[in-house]
Amino acid sequence: MSEPILQVRDLVKHFPVKRGVLFRRTIGQVKAVDGVSFDLNKGETLGVVGESGCGKSTLAQVLMRLEPATSGTAMFEGQDIFSLRGAALRKLRRDIQIVLQDPYTSLNPRMTVGDIVGEPFEIHPEVAPKGDRQAKVRELLDVVGLSPEHANRYPHQFSGGQRQRIGIARALALRPKVIICDEPVSALDVSIQAQVMNLLAELRREFSLSYVFIAHDLSVVRHLSDRVGVMYLGRMVEMGTEQQIYEHPTHPYTQALLSSVPVPDPSLRGQREIIRLTGDVPSPVSPPSGCRFRTRCWKARDLCATETPPLVDPGTSPVEGATWPGGDEGAAHPSACHFPEEKPKVVA
């Protein structure tokens, strides 16, 4: 195992729900992220999947310091990024960057592509002396597969895929060590999506980057990730290698999620077991007690309502009543369920 570059511990982000016109009082908390811990290793891609409202985008915002964390720590190269101020925070910006989802709103329409990609150098003038900037911008455009001649154009003259490349070039400008990709391909068409995913994989190799890759599309996440965390209602419910999660999921939510993904093979129609969850995701303002998935879980028992299942390796902390397929190494990964078990053939 290589060393972790980013260690997140018990990260919590609550947004207050306020009411009242003159005297605004807090009437509740949206528990967007509620105790998330993970390690990101050097050169690795950690996928984070979950449905809308599970807190995965909030996680990205908090890690980027775009929103303050309510509590918890995130250690990057020995310092807690939530406690950084001033110059130290600016320095951190050079090391951690973000690629945003929407290629249509993530680029300032009034700036040329050259200005957009060059802005990081203006904000961090120490990175590149003034005379070098133009050359650097052209290099960056070249690296992401755009013609350097495009530097004088405006974003609206580009397609969605090309715009996403511009956003990637901007994130790459300061040579970060970690890039947080917040749904980078979900707004793109299938054929363009593949081009951008290949580019991201390519850049990871060339610049030895580490990615936190956030997406709702399970196939996309699997394609790029070494390890995967599954989020539900602000919590990480299962975490493991790409193979453990996709081939040997043990959390019922992961199983349901995987089985819901339509498989592009009509010959499998009716062949595979599909777990249909009923109802919608509960409100993050008042999430269910105990296990948050219990309201939609077919295995829920009394215990699930009273005790929160921890996300632990079953090897280190045996859980009462848990059944494990004997000796299957695929199962031995953290799963926040009181009754984790593999289900045969969830994925075709």
Partner: peptide, 25 residues
């Protein structure tokens, strides 16, 4: 960390410049 120039020349990315066939909306 590699230099972008080096990366570009070394990489010869398969994806690069593909979208340039039409610089269209």
């Amino acid at each position: 960390m590699t230099d972008p120039t080096a990366a570009a020349s070394a990489g010869k990315m398969e994806t690069r410049a593909q979208e340039e066939i039409t610089a269209e909306g």
